[in-house]
Amino acid sequence: MRDYIIRRILVVIPLLFAISLLSFFIMQLSPGSYLDDLRMNPDISEELIRKMEADFGLDQNIFIQYFSWLKEILQGNLGESFTYRIPVAQIIGSRLFNTLLLSAAAMLISWGIAIPIGIYSAVHRYSFLDNIFSVFSFIGLSIPNFFFALLLLFSIVRFDIPLPINGMTSIMYDYMSPMEKVIDILKHLLVPAVVLGTAGTASLMRQMRGQMLDVINKDYIRTARAKGLKEKKVIYKHAFRNAINPMITIFGFQLSSLFSGAALTEIVTGWPGLGRMMLTAVRSKDLYLAMAGMMMGSLMLIIGNLAADILLALNDSRIKYQ
């Protein structure tokens, strides 16, 4: 097992290198640069733009640009943002916690709801409740996040529900006691977390249901039942443990979204996370900020996959890595 993990980590290095190469070149070869916005400003002269181009090193050969970026990255320097003119690490750092909080809350909600309901639906297939859940999950699958968020916000305003509709803390936050601060953040967290959480719920629920159904009809379940085991034990010990494997893989993938944030939901609910900032960075071609975001996302995806593989081995003793 340990050897396997070490080997996996070693593979990560060339992988990250390839990802960085690819994303850097795609960013740079797609038309336009950070300076285009400035070009459309009648007050800014060509001369100034050329000067800034040289300042940012954008006038150099793309390979030289890439390798100087790589050199800095290897020394732990993520570079400086064109837009903010301060180190990328500081910009990301100021928002990392917020994104983590939101994603974790959303994951908690989606997994917390999806798994029990998925199991229930599979065990009580075609029952009244199963049908109701199916209808809801189809609705959930088809409503876009941002629209659901707007709908929730609209109802809050319409029906005067005492919930905040924007941001992460209220205006009086700085004057609150620690306990009030926590409650304040939780109140603000509710809408975006519910939106993101329920969005994931629908598909997870269907996955879980499908997997359980697959397993429930297997011979060994019948054997377990024939042995006279309690139904609860049959479901949770035998069926669930076998059905959960693909879910663990999905979980690994989802881990990567912990940091990448959810731009649209963040924009609509005014949550100060990384998602929106990264979206703007990519669109305005703030090269090093966008690269840092992409590299972080890729790294999390790799780590998530690794974590999932390890969890799989822990859950299922049939899986062995050499």
Binding site: L153, I165, N166, G167, I171, E266, V268, G270, R276
Partner: peptide, 18 residues
Amino acid sequence: WIRVIAESQETESLLFEK
């Protein structure tokens, strides 16, 4: 003077209407 960063015009008008 508190200037809330609303991120979208929809949120801006919701805040005002609230």
